[in-house]
Design a protein around this nucleic acid. Structure first.
Length: 161
DNA sequence: CGTCTTTGACCGGCGC
DNA sequence: GCGCCGGTCAAAGACG
């Protein structure tokens, strides 16, 4: 099966992620026509770097520097978002018949984590949670949000495995 | 041979 | 203190 390529839309959202005052939830919905971008008012999901310290003091479990939740309507949960992830765990959660997968960014020094699971009630949806902000660009950089990208090529075909 | 998955073990927090 | 629960580790294997 073909991995989904978030591509440009994802990078656009990454731009938003770097905004510490982001208060909306971005999502992509995959339908017959392709991806549809959207946003809804955000529940307490994204924590700014400053706020995260406060939160961390109150709740050590939430020491993330930013948390983004994607809800994607998709058959497969393997999504190529331009970063390289190494799976480090899988768990069955009590409330859901679906397993939860844990990934870590495989770039050294970048401890961004990612959690992927299916909606426990509507398994057509994949919930992807990103914890943290990358301290580096995408290793593949298939799309660019900087203007000097003209010299680069979207990596012939797909190096994205 | 290096890299990444798989999988059970392990661990810390929390409620009882 | 004990057991549940969610998150992580790490050894072994798969895979290129």
């Amino acid at each position: 099966m073909d991995p989904i390529n978030f591509g440009k839309a994802y990078n656009a959202i990454i731009d938003d992620i770097s905004n510490p005052y982001l208060d909306i939830l971005n999502f992509l919905e995959l339908n017959e026509d392709g991806f549809r971008e959207g946003s809804v008012p955000l529940p307490p999901v994204v924590v700014s770097p400053e706020k995260s310290e406060d939160v961390a003091k109150k709740n050590k479990k939430m020491k993330m520097e930013g948390r983004i939740v994607f809800v994607t309507k998709s058959e497969v949960e393997i999504m190529d978002d331009g970063f390289k992830w190494r799976k480090y765990g899988k768990k069955m959660v009590k409330n859901s018949p679906n397993p939860r997968n844990y990934y870590k960014c495989s770039s050294g020094g970048c401890g961004v984590k990612k959690r992927v699971e299916r909606d426990n009630e509507d398994s057509r949806y994949v919930i992807t949670t990103y914890d943290g902000v990358h301290n580096h660009e995408s290793p593949f950089v298939p799309y660019y949000h900087h203007s000097d990208a003209s010299t680069l090529q979207p990596s012939s075909s797909s190096t994205t495995t």
